[in-house]
Design a protein around this nucleic acid. Sequence first.
DNA 1: GCTGATCATTTTGCATTCATTTTTTGGAAG
DNA 2: CTTCCAAAAAATGAATGCAAAATGATCAGC
Lengths: 238, 238
Amino acid sequence: MSEPFLDTLDEQSPAPAEIAKPVASLHEGLLVALRDFIVEGNLEDGARVPERALCERFNISRTPLREALKVLAAEGLIELLPNRGARVRELSSADLRELFDVMGGLEALAGRLACERITEVEFAEIERIHHEMYRFYLRRDMHGYFHCNQAIHQLIVAAAGNATLSATYAGLAGRIRRVRYSANLAKDRDRLGEAMREHEAILDALRRRAGSELSDILFLHLRNKLKAAQAPALAAGA
Amino acid sequence: MSEPFLDTLDEQSPAPAEIAKPVASLHEGLLVALRDFIVEGNLEDGARVPERALCERFNISRTPLREALKVLAAEGLIELLPNRGARVRELSSADLRELFDVMGGLEALAGRLACERITEVEFAEIERIHHEMYRFYLRRDMHGYFHCNQAIHQLIVAAAGNATLSATYAGLAGRIRRVRYSANLAKDRDRLGEAMREHEAILDALRRRAGSELSDILFLHLRNKLKAAQAPALAAGA
DNA sequence: GCTGATCATTTTGCATTCATTTTTTGGAAG
DNA sequence: CTTCCAAAAAATGAATGCAAAATGATCAGC
């Protein structure tokens, strides 16, 4: 068998992006579909994005497709080379570091804001999932563990109650989601225990509504996650 | 005379956005031009964006213009109503709060990263501008003061050495730049002194490379800035 | 046999065109 | 005079067409 978990990193971002829009449009559909198509890895890293083929794939003409490509390029998912079409953007390890740091900064912010406004009900839900994650951890059930981990981070961002933050965060997460390496994380048992302890600290700070402290913990948590992800260099699934 | 300084808020963001792109494209030009056109306030808040007029204004056909509009909508500068065209997005006070908080989070991150990698030369430059700002403060020269203030924040973000952060930050700053209220800030002398003291603390923390501390200070600095900006509600220039 | 140039094919970028939808305008009824 | 409806006008969303650029394929030259 191949790698145990070719899941994407244990990051959140359920919906691709979406800056608050009053009503849904028709073109929106294509944008979402195309973004998913790329994020889900249907195109190779650095591969050129075939306009014509995608037009047939989505049953549309080139005009709306090209509009969507422009948007995805602005999001950083692809890059547009003048007169040479679109290419799936490759993430260098430096890009990855940058993305993790910014996501760490945004999670730090989310934690701080969450401390200001989180309700007991919301906290209880996070705590519940945390305990569930702990059980997965004890059983070494990586799939369940990652799922809970993702849910917790997602709930913290949501608890911040800031749509702009959520949208910004989701946009960056989408760019990372193409990168696959959880096999890496799964193999490093020490990191797993460490991550579990960090999550304990996160929950504790959140319980005490210690915003500034939680902020630090979350940023460092992301830093450690990055380190673990790119450390052994056994990375890159497939 | 009207307000003393109908400048935009003392925020940075020199170049509109730009996610790292290998080479410049032709379409890029239109996008930048159109973004500036809107950011500079050539269109009323909430006004519909006249496609035809802009086509003539920029001497292009509707196709590239519409592509640019889609991108600007994704950035959050305008909103696209299905079958009803584009409108300049209005910022509610809640939107403004969200934007300030996220920018505060990003500045907090910038400060943290800057502490890790800033050079003595870069720090000296920031310190120099800080002292220049102090002289403007003593003379109550608001224009010079704001200019220095903006430069300092900009240099901290730059010192973070994270292009993704810079681009994200610039994008949000662009959305705020349409809002004008420095008249507000200028009138509140107490806030000015307070801001000056906060900047002292920022410089001090940066000097000591106290990342986590600087992070807190910067976030709260932005919070206070928002409070001052929307407190007296004499806001909204013109 | 390999490198480099010329030409055909494909692809990109933009303008134009077409079908729908929305907005405006004019008028009739109450 | 106001309100409602209908038709004209305009604008939007998407498809097609066309010029320019790039890709590749073939062929000449070394």
